[in-house]
């Protein structure tokens, strides 16, 4: 599948934003995050920027961005529509909780706990809906599995938490929560790595049940191969769904994603935990930068490696 820049940016940025919002609220609800205005302002506005920039980017790839509101209407059947509805809905409780935080409301009140709980849940639901857009597509074997939502959720967890490791080093008053945030980030990175390893196995070692024979229905007569394509130049189908990447390139990018997305952030955050806060701030900022590169490469591969069943009509054997 064609790896569109806008969709890669959207899914990675909004994933990190929802992850960040989720952890801020959860750590606050559990009493681990002190209600300092700095953490509230920095955390919630960064989450807002990441999510909003992502959502805006996702509308840029539409043929008619001005009609985007229509996408909120078909939530009964469409995961894309559900995602839109969930994304809009999430702004309300998360925004409210963020406002309560920075303006000094008593967040231990049941009202605020409810708002927070709802906001955290909606962050998870929105990321889940994003993943289900892909996981629900039967023609793309690589995506059609529970591994897809698991990977999106784990990566949102990890990237959101990595961003938070930087924020908790902005202020000495947040020193007490650093160990918890670091642990959450390290655990999220480890979890994502395991899940993405399963995805890699699925993409490289398994294929869908479709074949050139089932696509043409000519299997009873013998082995089917493409003799002549319908057109000499690439068309929309080939550009959009026929995108493919050489195996060795994919492997090289996979290693790059592993180094930038896993090894470096893991090591930097682990070391930062033992460092004074100013050095820790630099190390975690580097970790966040590296993780961002890693997850973008990961997302690029998520699309580029996925094979669509239409390729069976263009010479592919299995898909």
């Amino acid at each position: 599948m064609h790896p569109a820049k806008s969709v890669i940016f959207f899914t990675t940025a909004s994933g990190a934003g929802y992850g960040l919002g989720f952890w801020l609220i959860l750590l606050s609800l559990t009493g681990l995050a002190p209600q300092t205005p700095l953490l509230g302002w920095a955390g919630f506005s960064l989450a807002f920027v990441l999510v909003t920039a992502g959502l805006l980017a996702s509308t840029f790839h539409l043929g008619h961005p001005e009609r985007a509101w229509r996408a909120l209407s078909q939530w009964r059947t469409s995961w894309l529509s559900r995602e839109g509805v969930a994304a809009v809905a999430t702004y309300i409780p998360v925004g409210l909780y963020g406002a309560g935080w920075v303006f000094g409301a008593d967040l231990s009140q049941p009202f605020w706990q409810t708002v927070g709980g709802l906001g955290a849940a909606l962050c998870v639901i929105t990321v889940f809906c994003t993943a289900m857009i892909y996981a629900s597509l039967k023609p793309v074997h690589a995506w059609r599995s529970a591994v897809t939502p698991a990977a999106y959720l784990a990566l949102a967890w990890a990237t959101g938490a990595v961003v938070l490791t930087v924020l908790v080093r902005l202020d000495a008053g947040l020193a007490d929560m650093r160990a918890a945030v670091d642990t959450i980030a390290l655990f999220g990175i480890a979890l994502s790595t395991v899940i993405k390893r399963v995805h890699w196995f699925r993409v490289t070692k398994t294929h869908g049940t479709g074949s050139a024979e089932s696509a043409t229905g000519l299997g009873d007569l013998g082995k089917v191969t493409l003799l002549e394509a319908p057109h000499t130049e690439a068309n929309y189908l080939l550009k959009e769904m026929g995108f493919s990447i050489a195996r060795q390139h994919a492997a090289a990018l996979w290693r790059a994603a592993f180094i930038a997305g896993v090894i470096l952030p893991f090591a930097l955050i682990a070391v930062a935990g033992a460092m004074p806060s100013s050095l820790g701030l630099v190390l975690t900022a580097l970790a966040a930068l590296s993780a961002a590169i890693g997850v973008v490469v990961e997302r690029w591969l998520f699309f580029a490696q996925a094979k669509h069943s239409v390729t069976l009509y263009y010479g592919a054997d299995r898909a």
Binding site: A212, G222, K223, T225, L226, Y314
Partner: peptide
């Protein structure tokens, strides 16, 4: 679109 396939028996 008109594709053309070759089918080969064993």
């Amino acid at each position: 679109r008109i594709h053309t396939f070759e089918v080969e028996t064993e």
